[in-house]
Design a protein around this nucleic acid. Sequence first.
DNA 1: CATGAATGAGGGTTCATTCAT
DNA 2: CATGAATGAACCCTCATTCAT
Lengths: 201, 201, 201, 201
Amino acid sequence: MLNLMGKNDKQDLIIEAALAVFREKGYANTRMADIAKRAGVSYGLVYHYFGSKDVLFDVIVDTWWSSAHAMLDAQKSPGVDFEQKLINIIRFFLDTYANNPDLITIFVTEVSRSSVYHTPKGLANFQKTFKHFEDIMGDGQKSGFLRKDIGTHYLTYIFLGAIEAFISVMVLGKEPMSAERERRAINSINQVFLNGARVKA
Amino acid sequence: MLNLMGKNDKQDLIIEAALAVFREKGYANTRMADIAKRAGVSYGLVYHYFGSKDVLFDVIVDTWWSSAHAMLDAQKSPGVDFEQKLINIIRFFLDTYANNPDLITIFVTEVSRSSVYHTPKGLANFQKTFKHFEDIMGDGQKSGFLRKDIGTHYLTYIFLGAIEAFISVMVLGKEPMSAERERRAINSINQVFLNGARVKA
Amino acid sequence: MLNLMGKNDKQDLIIEAALAVFREKGYANTRMADIAKRAGVSYGLVYHYFGSKDVLFDVIVDTWWSSAHAMLDAQKSPGVDFEQKLINIIRFFLDTYANNPDLITIFVTEVSRSSVYHTPKGLANFQKTFKHFEDIMGDGQKSGFLRKDIGTHYLTYIFLGAIEAFISVMVLGKEPMSAERERRAINSINQVFLNGARVKA
Amino acid sequence: MLNLMGKNDKQDLIIEAALAVFREKGYANTRMADIAKRAGVSYGLVYHYFGSKDVLFDVIVDTWWSSAHAMLDAQKSPGVDFEQKLINIIRFFLDTYANNPDLITIFVTEVSRSSVYHTPKGLANFQKTFKHFEDIMGDGQKSGFLRKDIGTHYLTYIFLGAIEAFISVMVLGKEPMSAERERRAINSINQVFLNGARVKA
DNA sequence: CATGAATGAGGGTTCATTCAT
DNA sequence: CATGAATGAACCCTCATTCAT
């Protein structure tokens, strides 16, 4: 399933082992020896390929940010219906949770807050993502779809926050994903974000 | 400003120093020596009062959870207008950010994801909080204020997610809080959550 | 029962607590705080009276050596029957075990080997005791009671070794003492030491 | 001289250094840094091989108990003359003293009392040894060589006590061993144990 | 490529001791 | 006499990283 480096060799074994161990124990409690053992290689080899624990973690984290940025870039084409864009974005996160739970768990538990706060690179990636969202919200306002009396910042808080909260609860509760759950999540987030939670008069 | 223990003695100095250092460096990179030095006390005194780094951190984290649980409990009284409850909740987070930025920063960067995922106690606290939110949303549905076609889980994702996203962005960007910003945040989150982001027909 | 210092006050409470804790945990694993807590006093007071952990331990150990030296001195009077001397000596150890098990346990487990080997004072006390035994054996040879073809060193090894082995087994096995057991022990040690273990022709 | 692990590598260097340092300073006052320095290896290598100070000590102590148990097992063959068994046992201790004084010194000063009293493993080893001695004494009684009116417990106290006292005095006095001294020790212990110290009528 | 022995700086923790009250 | 808050040197252990083979 996963083949981050393009070569199905020891490097991939190490990456996959690292994903599993980082998810289970968190960055601070992960030992390079754990990763090597899980990958079935000597731990000299981990250094041969990745140089340091930090670099290995970065490789994984970059995988995440790259895919997120790519997905958000893809939503910039003006031809797509706005509501469909929102659905695409939600679906991207849910699919990642379904297909690569280790990766998104690491993102949620190790990167989304701590690493973003404590490293310049993390902050830059976060801000880039946030900017993507704001741009999309700005487009929605320009096209007359979204209300203009709420700043794009706030629209992003609500929409991104909802997705993140959903994913986080799945991760924190280690809940499995299903097609039905995915359908309902997309619909609910979309419904409330666009139409509000209040009963209409 | 802060006086968690009710006595303005060495224990408080240590707690305040710990808040500052944990926020600056994160749990993993915090040295007990840093805390002692910042508090202006000897190395051993931190252990005299708190026993271990872990316990010291827990004391701080418990402060947060306790105040959050207390605030949410207070919203359970049926006499209060539902929309006012939402505003109270949003305001609690914003006020904490304004008055105790170290505490909420530690919560956002060290506790809200990582600790919740990796410790049973963290998970329990999170689930208790989530349950509080769901109960409130359930009350809103029963009273006819909120739509019933969206589950309380999803309503919570949207509302809690929005608040958390807002606070997180403030924390991550180290942005200052102001009365005007607070007013606008409350209004925006409330508006979109209740009425939706879509332009009305 | 025990009143080592002659005053039944805090000092005695501390000594008694120290006896109990040193026996339970051994010197290395005994905390001054444990002793203070067991005695029901603040641990500043332990220092007030005894100055240091080392001194406190020494006070206890000296109690032992003093009583042992005094008993052995008392056996020097020429008027006493030699076999009775041996019995007196054996009985002294057994009675101490019965009346002050903490003290003799500390002697066996903490002093008799380790402290004797590692401290000059311990060695001096041991050598003084050994000399006492040798003198007694020498007297036994001079009076024509003991064989002269075995050096007093070796006679001491056998006799002292037997007593020590008996006491140690009691201590190590935490076995209770009884009058019957005491009678048999005295008789057996005496019998074998004087007449040998071999079946007579 | 000593090669406990069968490979003359770093592990052996560490074991040999540990023997020397544990003997000189005792367990409590031994620093892992001392052992590493004495062995001429880095600090971490001691942990690489032995995991902890405790384990390192245990490895050494197990060496002792194993050899003692093996020797005692070897005396169970019925074909050997009983008096020769006693001599073999005495000689084993004296030879160990001559060939591996560090090991037996550690046993006498750190293990024989304190560790036996304070650790279950130590107690079990001691009891196994004591049982060996009792069995041998029981065989001596059955074969008609030893008197039956003295329990095997007491015969063991006398015989084992004598050996231990002899070795302990050598250790505590740091006395050198010689062939002549060994011959005399064996003869004296054997003589008194079998025939008694009393002048025959 | 691959191994794992070897390194050593770093950090949490302990606990005997001091001293102001 | 009595207390216990305060001190800080000492030490065990961890683990990322290096490097000879």
